[in-house]
Amino acid sequence: MTAPATTGQLREKLSDMEIGDYIVWKYDNTTSGYIFGGSTTGYTEIPLTGNPLASMPLKYFWYAIKVDKGLLIADRVVSNTTTWDWLNSNKFVEGSPRIISETSGVVRCPSGGVAYADASGNKVLTSTNTGYGAWPTINEWDTYVVNFPLNKIFSGKSLNDLWNFKCMTWCKETTIPITGTVPGGWTTGGRTVRSENTTNSKDRFWSTASNYSNVAVGFRPVFDYKEV
């Protein structure tokens, strides 16, 4: 099993988790849907590159990492070739209410900003990677993925070993139109995607058509729940 490179502990219950800990997140299409913890016997591990939506196994698993109180983020894109439109029609953009292992919450896309940011945290209407993440700067991708505490990553490992930047992640937002010439592949008024398997993967921001379907982009689920 490809466990994330966090120094946190593998937990069986959400109530035992601290920031940096991780837990098995399973999906069983034959019975109760999402499950946290427990044995993975009989379940297929999702590849670090994600799995095509049309050929998802009946029973599969990945890991979720706790990044804040009441917030888990999957350690990989789970389903690729998934369109933003499909996620939206199935309530996964803003949040699909679920009770998972007796915990109520929503399963949704992370937030990822609407434009590039500059060194001062202001928006920059460009398609060129500024290296400062996205605007608004308080978004889940930059706050929790890019800025995951380095002291909670195994020595000699990187963010890529933790979050598996193998393909891009759909985010909730619609991007702001940029100024100047629109580059190839950039969709004006498209949906935000973050990350790519490049040198600057952790800072990458892009605008893609909501009906785009490709193995290069997919759904990285977040579980947002009320922690008491």
Rank of each mutant, 00 (worst) to 15 (best):
P136A: 05
K166V: 00
F154P: 08
N151P: 10
E94V: 08
S96V: 06
G112T: 08
A134R: 14
W86T: 15
N80G: 03
S89C: 15
C167T: 04
S127C: 11
T143H: 05
K152C: 08
T81I: 06
T83R: 04
V145Y: 02
S158C: 05
G156F: 13
D85C: 13
F148N: 05
V124W: 13
V106G: 01
S155M: 14
E102V: 08
G121C: 11
C171P: 03
D118G: 13
T126R: 00
T128A: 14
S96D: 05
I138F: 14
G121M: 11
T137V: 09
D118N: 15
S158P: 12
L72Q: 01
V77T: 15
K123F: 07
I153C: 07
K123Q: 14
V124N: 09
C167G: 00
D118R: 12
W141S: 00
V107R: 03
K166Q: 01
V106D: 00
E94T: 08
S127V: 03
L125Q: 13
V145I: 14
E140V: 05
G113C: 01
L87K: 02
K166C: 00
S111K: 12
V145C: 03
D161N: 15
E173C: 00
V114Y: 10
R76P: 09
L125N: 12
S111D: 07
P136M: 05
L87M: 08
A117M: 02
T137M: 07
P149N: 03
M168Q: 06
E140R: 08
W170Q: 00
